[in-house]
Amino acid sequence: MENKELTVSVNMITFKHELYIKQAIEGVLMQQTNFDFELIIADDCSPDSTPEIINDIIKNHSQGHRIKYFRQDKNIGMQENGIFAFSQCLGKYIALCEGDDYWTDPLKLQKQVDFLEANPDYVLCFHPIKILRPDGTIDDDFITKVPENHETIETLARLGNYIHTPSVVFRNVTRSLPFEFRLSPIGDYFLYIILAGYGKLKYLEDKMAVYRYNVGVISRMSALDIANNNVKMYSCMIGYLTDENIKRIILDKQIRVVTEHYNMMESYYEEKMEAHYKDAFVSRHFIFIKIKMLGFYYKNPKLFVKKIKKILSK
């Protein structure tokens, strides 16, 4: 339930962020506002020194009283931890900043809340960010390109996610996230699609946050894993959405990803088999050719072995 006296809840999920969490928290606590805000930290049972760093800030920082810290008893995964954190946010607005990113402008919250207060037809506002590379250099955003017509759910559905998480402030319009969201392996894009059903999106001009490149879970995933997660996410979106036009757009995206995913899988397993058998067979040997033709049996090892035995018995 929304707290009428609390304007913003900052939602921060964290896991094994001992190198980054202090900077993330301090970027929130330095905010200068004419309203009250809180920082919700949901720690997914970090095994490193992340909890000690957080507790030290709560105890010793002059703004530590704003922090509500929750530590899971066991690791429940990023999506479940994020849903838990969302359920703890009682403010009129919710801001996002994961534990490995950070804010750079002390007026960030004030600017974004002022915009949303003055423009009730907008549900969410976001802004450009800087990107911190692993070597320590900071660049302008080279990952996303925000389209000119960025405000509608149709554009967001058609072009994909062009919103960086640490830039987001949105109205706390939904008391609980839908069942389909819990099943999705990707949360941020799905959340923005949900919110875009309540109003327009606004891109502000000030650069007020930094995103760490090649640090998060997604950065360490293979192209196959990313494609697989996208297929699952689109399925969950289609189950949630009621607007037929938006559902059709998402379905078309899913079909394209499925096709790309199949092609990647076919290429991957062909390369694996060729590498495995190249020392035993000449590439044009009939057995090797037959094995390449059987790549689509990789999901059923027993059937694959049966087919190989049949080939060898000829």
Rank of each mutant, 00 (worst) to 15 (best):
N60M: 03
K232P: 00
D100W: 00
I291C: 01
N11Y: 12
Q23R: 15
K292C: 14
M264P: 00
L109N: 05
E18P: 00
I193P: 12
I25S: 05
L177C: 03
D139W: 04
N119C: 04
R212G: 06
V168W: 07
I76W: 09
G239H: 13
I249R: 06
L156H: 11
M12Q: 01
I194A: 07
A196V: 01
G27D: 09
D140F: 01
T7E: 15
G295I: 13
Y122G: 07
Q112M: 06
N230L: 13
Q112D: 10
D141K: 10
A157G: 08
D206S: 04
G239F: 11
K202A: 15
L124K: 04
M221E: 14
L159I: 01
H276A: 14
L107C: 03
L156W: 03
C125P: 00
N119H: 14
K92T: 13
K130Y: 07
S184H: 09
A223F: 02
C236D: 04
I226A: 04
D279V: 06
A280T: 11
L195V: 01
V28D: 08
I54L: 10
T155L: 07
H276M: 09
A209D: 01
G27S: 11
V258G: 00
P178Q: 02
D139T: 15
I287W: 06
P128C: 09
L6K: 02
L312N: 12
D279M: 11
F15E: 05
G82S: 08
V28H: 04
V231S: 04
H261M: 11
V123R: 03
N229W: 05
Q72G: 03
I255Q: 11
N11H: 14
C236V: 01
Q63V: 01
F181Y: 15
K59T: 13
T104Y: 11
H285T: 06
L124E: 13
L39D: 05
V217R: 14
L124G: 02
Q32E: 15
N55C: 02
P178T: 00
F35I: 01
F37R: 05
L107F: 14
F288E: 08
I54Y: 07
M237Q: 11
D140E: 15
E26W: 03
D101H: 04
V258F: 00
I129M: 08
T144S: 08
V168S: 04
E154M: 07
Y192T: 03
Q31L: 06
V28A: 12
P120G: 11
D121K: 10
D36F: 07
D100I: 00
G239L: 02
G82N: 12
N172K: 11
F126D: 02
F181A: 09
N230R: 14
L29S: 07
V8F: 08
L156M: 10
G295F: 10
